[in-house]
């Protein structure tokens, strides 16, 4: 059981993700953008952060950098769908370069998600 912060600007996707995690027995907090995400992070430091990369205002890359600055230990999983011009891989490679321990390209299923969480928390 872990305390997980989900940062994702797609409301529907965020809810589904949270539901999946709660069903798996985790304690979940959500934030709908990068700025809110960092606020939540400061308020209660989670064991794991799952963040989207392409978000308006403050994107996932900057979120990861800021989180790492505050707490180098926290585990981060980057998720990304990528858009037309760049593959999800570009985003995820970038995230990995700055410290995401696991990356997931959208779409992914429950098993892939849970496996990534397990690997990240190891």
């Amino acid at each position: 059981m872990a305390k997980i912060l989900v940062i994702e600007d797609d409301t529907q996707f965020c809810q589904m993700l949270a539901q999946m995690l709660i069903q798996a027995g985790h304690e979940v907090e959500t934030a709908l953008n990068g700025v809110l995400g960092l606020e939540r992070f400061r308020q209660s430091i989670p064991d794991l952060v799952i963040t989207d990369i392409m978000m308006p205002e403050k994107d996932g890359i900057d979120v990861i950098v800021d989180i790492k600055r505050q707490n180098a230990e926290v585990r981060i999983i980057a998720i990304s769908g990528g858009r037309r011009a760049i593959t999800p891989q570009f985003n995820l490679d970038s995230a990995a370069l700055i410290g995401a321990v696991q990356v997931l390209a959208k779409p992914f299923n429950r098993e892939q998600l849970l496996a990534a969480i397990a690997a990240a928390l190891e």
Binding site: I53, D59, I61, D62, V65, I86, F90, N91, S94, L97
Partner: peptide, 8 residues
């Protein structure tokens, strides 16, 4: 606009 742009 973002660091990601810079990487690209």
């Amino acid at each position: 606009e973002t660091a990601l742009h810079g990487a690209a």
